[in-house]
Amino acid sequence: MKSRNLIIGGLLTAIFLTEALISFVWTPFDVTQMNISSKLKTPNGTNWLGTDHFGRDIFSMIMVGARTSIAVALVAVSIGMFIGVPLGLAAAARQGSLLDEVIMRGNDLVFAFPSLVIAILITAVFGPGAVNAIIAIGIFNIPVFARLTRGAALPLWQREFIMAARVAGKGSSRISLEHILPNVTNLLIVQGTIQFSLGILAEAGLSYVGLGAQPPLPSWGRMLADAQTMVSFAPHLALIPGGAIILTVLGLNLMGDGLRDLLDPRIRVDRT
């Protein structure tokens, strides 16, 4: 049972992923269609998870909301990886140099700001919307990956197989790509799943304050915000998107945990 976390996490993630994918071709109801006559229904046979204050089907909104959340988080994490990892590799390859200092102090600078506040600032300046939310969340993923990559790459640079590659005349960029990167990939995958879940949370947070995806595109965060005033008489409006966020983040974290156990032989303990 050594990969129980991985199985549960993978299952939860897979559920929301399929949900998001299916929403492209089919949803039980049109999410933009209001039906005031059947508003605030509790879960029933027609509307599986009930309806909101405009009579929209909550199940359909959760499906489309998953799409928004996953898309935002995925692109944001990718931005972080594609910029952060090369920066980290470069800093490790030139450890102690001016380049290393510039990259790492730049990271410190980004880290020094509370990320959500700056994300709010960015969306406030450039206008709310999914794209700006992606950029804002993405920027704060860069130093996470840069630091992780540099930290993992530094001890590798001391290893003899890197010396052997240098004796073979390979330059530092080539060594970084051929020898360093494949040996830090495990770590990046694990960190990726964790950042992914944080991205979903951040998107929900931005949407909650109205700076994420704009109506009529549903989003988990805004569903929560809308439900706020109605919690006392229609608690399912808040519980359902809230539960969706919790389960997705939990699933991704469990998956990250399980992947780490699976990919890192050093902490692969025997649980017999």
């Binding site: 290893r159 052997a164 494949p182 040996n183």
Partner: peptide
């Protein structure tokens, strides 16, 4: 100029 290092475990990329 080529070299042979000490550590038979650390001098190769395991991948």
């Amino acid at each position: 100029l080529q070299v042979v290092f000490q550590d038979p475990y650390g001098s190769f990329n395991p991948r």
